[in-house]
Simulated assay, not measured.
Amino acid sequence: MPEDVVLPIPNLSLPQNLFVISQPHLAHLHENARKELLEGIRADQMAPYYRSVTAASALPLDQSLLDSMEATNKVELEKLNQRLEEAEKTEGESDIADALQAQANYLTRIGEKEKAIEAQKKALEKTAGMGSRIDIVLTLVRIGFFFGDFDMILSHLQQAEELIEKGGDWDRRNRFKVYRGFHLLSIRQFKRGGELLLDALSTFTATELLSYNDFVTYTIISNVLTLTRVDLKKKLIESSDIAQVLPELPVLADLMKNLYDSHYDKFFVALATLEQTLLIPSRLLHPHTRFYVREMRILAYSQLLESYRSLTLDSLARSFGVSVDFVDSELSRFIASGRLNCTIDKVHGVVETNRPPLKAAQYETVIRQGDILLNAVQRLSKVLY
């Protein structure tokens, strides 16, 4: 196998389909997800993975299918073991490394987690080229993503970063940004994760991890929440890389455009559609759905309120296409939690903004950063003395 070819193993679409099947409220998606899951398992002859998912989920076991795949796995592994034995007897270190890598990749492909990890680590020990070593570690990261093993993901991301700093090429540095960004989104660090994905947008090659459309989807979802209005237009709406796939992602197109153009009623519809069609069914984003929707609403409310000193509740409700009671209740919660700088005058039905003066805001920033600096100095002094 050429050094620059990265195999899309394990198939990361399968745990996504398994996730959908495991969610009762996604019953309308179950049939298609089950079909795609079984097709992927058959395509890669994943007997170990099939055995584990049928034991732990509602997916029924087809014993004849399992027997057939196990027989295929046995024959293929015997061939790979024989190849390794011959390499160890008669060939050099590079041939042994290639044989170990072939064996590790097959175990990874069929979803034999523990044996695949052990084999990949053995291959890593024997592999000399820095690029190939990075690829093996990133394969271990993908195994972690496949099985939802977060400790494994984190440890091997750190290992990959260390190897890349020692001698990673341009392509692997860019692919690593996608891996790191993908992981950061899974732990709700949308700002840093979004920055990394956006940085890799024009150089995306990590198709072994996710498709380009999925990559653009995650890039938009994370960055529309964290970018300023100016950067939203410059880096997303006007991006040629995003524009070429945006017709295939109409919900995200509506979300960005209506937020930027201040069509808040249409924005709320797009956000609700996004929640139901992309966030809730996503294995990666499902745990963060409520957080994301809440933060996007706060962003929209803040954007509108910043333009006015005061607004009636009625006009605010009309702008968002919701009832007065709804917007009153939601603003009250966000004001009470300190997320919106405004007050509600219930007597007159008016929302008044109370933005702090610029100098006061700057003063508070200096005080806060000064406290952080002093604390850091105190900790350092304890270490030194």
Rank of each mutant, 00 (worst) to 15 (best):
E3V: 12
D4S: 14
P10R: 09
P15I: 11
Q16F: 01
P24E: 02
H25G: 07
L29K: 13
H30P: 01
L37C: 00
E39D: 14
M46T: 08
P48D: 07
Y49N: 06
Y49K: 05
T54K: 15
A58C: 07
L59A: 03
P60F: 05
L61G: 10
S64M: 13
L65R: 11
L65K: 06
D67T: 14
E70M: 15
A71Q: 15
N73W: 02
K74C: 13
V75S: 12
N81H: 15
L84S: 05
E91R: 14
G92F: 07
L100S: 04
Y106P: 04
Y106A: 05
R109S: 04
K113H: 10
E114P: 01
I117Q: 08
E118M: 11
K122E: 05
A123I: 00
L124G: 07
T127P: 00
T127V: 00
A128H: 11
I134P: 00
I134H: 03
I134Y: 06
M152N: 07
M152A: 09
S155C: 06
E161N: 11
G167M: 01
R173Y: 02
Y179T: 02
R180G: 01
K191M: 05
G194A: 04
A200L: 02
S202D: 03
F204I: 01
E208D: 09
L209R: 02
S211I: 03
N213W: 02
D214A: 12
I220V: 15
L227K: 06
L227A: 08
T228H: 10
T228Y: 09
K233D: 14
K235F: 15
L236K: 10
P247L: 01
L249E: 01
L252Q: 01
A253K: 07
D254Q: 14
N258I: 05
L259W: 07
D265E: 14
F267W: 10
F267D: 05
F267T: 04
F267R: 08
E275K: 15
L284A: 06
P287V: 10
T289Q: 09
R290C: 06
R290M: 10
Y292I: 02
M296D: 06
Q303W: 06
L305E: 01
R309K: 12
L316S: 03
R318G: 02
G321R: 03
V322I: 13
R333K: 12
F334L: 13
C342Q: 01
H348Q: 04
G349K: 08
V350I: 11
E352C: 08
T353H: 08
K359E: 15
Q369L: 07
G370A: 06
V383P: 00
